[in-house]
Design a protein around this nucleic acid. Structure first.
Length: 155
DNA sequence: GCCAACGTTGGC
DNA sequence: GCCAACGTTGGC
């Protein structure tokens, strides 16, 4: 069954426009170095799932569009590459610590949906994103939350 | 750029 | 296995 997610990225590092410009408008989603997020990428994020692209640490912060998962979780090979900023000595090829998926651009909203806007809606009050202290960079979104945002807030 | 809230590390 | 110290995230 199709699932829904929200992936955070700092646009200084990787923005939705960067994704659009890549061949096939698709990309690896590497460099996730948090165990809870890793577990989602390894076990739950699946081909066909829909994902909100979220820009953090920029003004304004919020959801900028959607993408689709096109490859299930597989070892994050950047963690094996000494030259990569995502290199991690404890991740071994025969027993990888970190995982990633591939994504493909779907849609960029005409207007960003700011975090402050998301907070206004009772229907979204349970969103992982909006919980106090929440900073998961790969997080689940419920079907009703996803549809509410697409139907009422997307442009 | 600051700093609160988390997550991780490592000494004991 | 506790927990202080350190490192990171991300809203503001």
């Amino acid at each position: 069954m199709k699932k829904y997610w929200l992936f955070k990225s700092e646009p200084d590092v990787f923005s939705i426009d960067n994704l659009i410009k890549l061949p096939e408008s698709s990309s690896t989603w590497e460099g996730i170095r948090n165990y809870q997020a890793r577990n989602s990428l390894r076990d739950d994020v699946s081909i066909g799932d829909e994902v909100f692209f979220y820009h953090s640490r920029i003004d304004p912060i919020g959801i900028v569009g959607t993408m689709e998962v096109i490859k299930n979780g597989y070892p994050d090979h950047f963690s094996f590459d000494k030259k990569s900023k995502y290199y991690d000595i404890k991740s071994k090829k025969e027993n990888p610590t970190w995982f990633m998926v591939d994504v493909k651009f779907q849609r960029k909203f005409k207007n960003i949906i700011p975090l402050s806007e998301l907070r206004k809606h009772f229907e979204l009050s349970k969103m992982v994103l909006l919980q106090k202290g929440s900073r998961l960079s790969i997080q689940p979104v419920t079907e009703s939350e996803f549809k509410f945002i697409m139907d009422n807030l997307s442009t």
